[in-house]
């Protein structure tokens, strides 16, 4: 039974981390669905969110406010700030290239990732910073042999709420329907009266907000943050998005959870050094065996 206990313990960890990946993966997938662009800055937007949250909590001292108020500020303000950053990237870097070659945009996206890292290093420095460790109670409880912390529950619930909100928006509103329509046909969407540029901006805002939220969550969960933290995060979330079938929203969420679980099992049963080997090995295998992703019906190609 000890083996089972370990397994469940790793599962709890995996689902927690996986929900962070899922949030970032959603950003990749929403933007890709609309303009066929892999926004490689997605992971770094998460890092920016983490640092904005840290600035508010630690530098500005909001950690001393009542915890609910502190948390609301630490999530909402970075989400707005990061959305503005992503809108800037869209406007100045991607928009002039949107009707040009995909390769130019792809390279620009990589450039934006580096730009955010360098900007963060300039602003916040190269040192590792720490989130207030006692923001949420560190304690937890046992379910049989499995230890679950309140932080884990709070973060997973918050992620699920954000994902639920996103799905409700995309499935339940006319603007969300327009976002799905853009995956099919931009010109036909224009003929409906849809302001395509505005909908693209909404997608960038949503992607950035989810990334920023995941960044703050990472800060709360792992405590330490660093300006390079977005790189591996982005890569794993990208893997998650591809696993789920890029452009596919439920796929991104499931892919994120899967990557989180893989990572937790690998760390638990092998060692942390094998994490990336396994994660990317799985990515390559999926790409070879089922290139549309595990859940992929193919996203309709745009005309």
């Amino acid at each position: 039974m000890l083996g089972m206990g370990d397994f469940l313990q790793y599962t709890v960890i995996g689902l927690t981390v996986g929900s962070f990946y899922a949030l970032v993966a959603l950003g990749y997938t929403i933007v890709y669905g609309i303009i066929r662009l892999i926004n490689f800055a997605q992971g770094d937007l998460s890092m920016v969110g983490a640092f904005l949250g840290w600035t508010l909590l630690v530098s500005f001292g909001f950690e001393h406010l009542p915890v609910y108020l502190a948390l609301v500020i630490a999530f909402v303000v970075p989400m707005i700030g990061t959305a503005i950053v992503n809108l800037g990237i869209l406007q100045f870097a991607y928009k002039p290239l949107l009707r040009r070659s995909l390769l130019a945009i792809l390279i620009t996206a990589l450039g934006m990732s580096l730009l955010l890292q360098n900007a963060a290093e300039l602003i916040w420095g190269a040192a590792i910073e720490a989130y207030p460790p006692n923001l949420l109670p560190l304690s937890g409880f046992f379910v049989g042999p499995v230890h679950v912390t309140y932080v884990q529950i709070a973060l997973v619930v918050a992620s699920l709420l954000l994902m639920g909100g996103l799905v409700a928006f995309i499935q339940g509103t006319t603007i969300g329907t327009a976002m799905r329509a853009l995956a099919v046909d931009h010109d036909a969407a224009r003929l409906m009266g849809i302001n395509v540029d505005a909908v693209i901006r909404i997608a960038f805002v949503l992607g950035a907000m989810l990334a920023a939220a995941s960044g703050v969550m990472l800060g709360i969960y792992y405590v330490q943050i660093h300006f390079t933290m977005g790189f591996l995060l982005g890569l794993r979330a990208f893997t998650a998005a591809v696993l789920g079938g890029i452009g596919n929203i439920p796929g991104a969420m499931a892919g994120g959870m899967l990557i989180g679980l893989l990572e937790a099992y690998t760390t638990g049963y092998l060692s942390g050094t094998w994490e990336d080997v396994v994660v990317f090995g799985v990515l390559i295998t999926v790409l070879i065996v089922k290139p549309t992703g595990l859940f992929g019906e193919r996203v309709a190609e745009r005309m």
């Binding site: 603007i175 329907t177 327009a178 799905r180 329509a181 099919v184 036909a188 409906m192 309709a300």
Partner: peptide, 20 residues
């Protein structure tokens, strides 16, 4: 050029996008 991944209702809703 209807939106083939959306249902009939959603296609019509998009036709009324400006009065949504």
């Amino acid at each position: 050029r209807i939106f083939n991944i959306l249902d009939v209702d959603e296609n019509l809703a998009l036709g009324g996008y400006l009065i949504r």
